[in-house]
């Protein structure tokens, strides 16, 4: 249903780091779940529009008005690593 290699690829995409044992277990569990989900293949969905929202509203807007921003200290208060002005992360250079 899903291979170990696929699991490892999805883990990178999802930014998760799995141990070899976790990857193995994930492969088995997701395999079982996906197999169950193949149940949907028996439903004829030709000419059926997808339904993404339970309530089909349209055109909900806010007016273009400025409201106060958070005080910087409040904004950064929950940051795991920061300085007086900014969030800090390991170098992003070399990444696209």
């Amino acid at each position: 249903m899903i291979s170990l290699a696929e699991i490892e690829k999805v883990a990178v995409l999802a930014r998760l780091l799995l141990t070899p044992a976790e990857s193995q277990q994930m492969t088995e569990q997701l395999g079982k779940i996906l197999e169950y989900m193949s149940l949907l293949n028996e439903v004829n969905t030709e000419n059926v529009e997808p339904l993404a929202h339970a309530v089909e509203l349209t055109n909900v807007f806010r007016e273009d008005r400025v409201t106060p921003s958070l005080d910087r200290e409040m904004a950064l208060a929950n940051a795991p690593h920061r300085d007086e002005e900014c969030y800090r992360v390991p170098a992003v250079l070399g990444e696209v």
Partner: peptide, 25 residues
């Protein structure tokens, strides 16, 4: 100055929701 024009919504804090700016559309 950095990070003085932010709020829970544009910081993407848990639980916040976007509402579309009419003028932008």
């Amino acid at each position: 100055p950095p990070n003085t024009q932010t709020c829970p919504i544009c910081i993407g804090m848990p639980g916040v929701l976007p509402v579309m700016n009419r003028r932008a559309v």
